[in-house]
Structures are given as structure tokens and as C-alpha cells.
């Protein structure tokens, strides 16, 4: 079990004023009362905010009648849902079998070093979040990582760091 995911920290940055809850209205409209709607609701909310802030849970629960505890149960069960803000670029380093055999650990290590964060953390400037995922489906190009919709294959620690450096340069300009 991903026990770690349940220990949610309250994030002080996300006060109610920072979250525009009215954005939720169209998806609530779309899914309200439909059976099996909980996951699509949460997915829709996460698409809007990048993660699911506490206020969003409360609003969804109030307006759809789904129990807050049920919703939190689902959100913590699936790897897809985030309860904390993430960086602008999410670096998903593949740790599937094929990538593991081709030394994916070296990629994660190199990125950890160049961003100075741990796995799962976000850089202080909010530009990058480093994550490990299981298989991106490009196993023949192992080791692989994905940033946004772009996939990078046949990486080495060096080339992975270079990709990050290039993105950072682009962001700063």
C-alpha cells in the first residue's frame, strides 16, 4: 500500500482565496447524479488545479452528496491523484522492469543531484517535480522519462540532466 500518500500535509499556501471554486461548476453539472461519477469528478478537478485542494473536496462533497471520506478514500487509493501542489514540469522517470534493467536508478540519481530534490519533491522555484512511475510504454527505448507530453528515451544520467538544464533555460527566458 502507498501508505505515504495518506499522510497529507496541510499546505498553507492554498487558502480558499487562492482556489477559484467556480471553475468546478461545469464538471459538477456534467457528472452530478450519474453513477460511477466519483473518479471522473476527481480527475476533472485535478485537471483544473493540477492537484486536489482541500476546499475542492469539500465543495464536491457538498454539491454532489458524495461522502467526504469516500472521496478521500478514492483519492488516496489511486496513484494519479495528488493532494499537494506540483511543479510546472513534472518529470516522470520510468522505473518499469525494462528501464530498471537498463539502470533507471542512474537517471533518477542524476536528476536528484542536478535539481537537489528527493524523489516526489518539488523544487523551491516551483519549476520541477520529480516522480517515479511504472512503465511509460516505450520500453524498447529504456531508460525513459516523460516531461509534459514529451518522452525522452535511451537516456544516460548526463543526457537526462541536460534535458532538465535546457528546460530550465527556456523557462528563465
Amino acid at each position: 500500500m502507498r501508505i505515504k500518500r495518506i499522510q497529507v500535509q496541510e499546505d498553507k499556501q492554498t487558502s480558499a482565496s487562492a482556489v477559484d471554486l467556480s471553475l468546478l461548476d461545469p464538471i459538477i453539472e456534467k457528472y452530478k447524479g450519474k453513477r460511477g461519477n466519483m473518479i471522473p469528478l476527481l480527475q476533472g478537478a485535478q485537471d483544473l488545479y493540477g492537484f486536489i485542494p482541500r476546499e475542492v473536496f469539500v465543495k464536491l462533497s457538498e454539491e454532489t452528496g458524495i461522502n467526504l471520506s469516500d472521496m478521500f478514500g478514492v483519492a488516496t487509493f489511486y496513484a494519479q491523484f495528488r493532494l499537494n501542489p506540483v511543479g510546472k514540469n513534472i518529470i516522470k522517470v520510468c522505473h518499469g522492469t525494462a528501464c530498471h534493467v537498463q539502470n533507471a536508478t542512474a537517471i533518477t540519481d542524476a536528476i536528484k543531484e542536478s535539481l537537489n530534490v528527493k524523489d516526489g519533491e518539488t523544487t523551491p522555484d516551483g519549476l520541477f517535480t520529480l516522480e517515479s512511475v511504472a512503465c511509460l510504454g516505450c520500453c524498447s527505448l529504456a531508460p525513459v522519462m516523460m516531461i509534459g507530453n514529451e518522452t525522452y528515451g535511451k537516456l544516460s544520467g548526463k543526457s537526462a540532466s541536460k534535458v532538465i538544464k535546457d528546460i530550465r533555460l527556456k523557462e528563465l527566458n
Binding site: 522505473h95 518499469g96 522492469t97 525494462a98 528501464c99 511504472a134 512503465c135 510504454g137 516505450c138 520500453c139 524498447s140
Partner: peptide, 11 residues
């Protein structure tokens, strides 16, 4: 759902 990490037939 193709859960096996390291396989991509279904994709």
C-alpha cells in the same frame, strides 16, 4: 489497463 511494467503490447 496493461499493468505489467515493461510491456506495451496493448498500447
Amino acid at each position: 489497463d496493461e499493468g505489467d511494467p515493461g510491456a506495451f503490447m496493448d498500447r
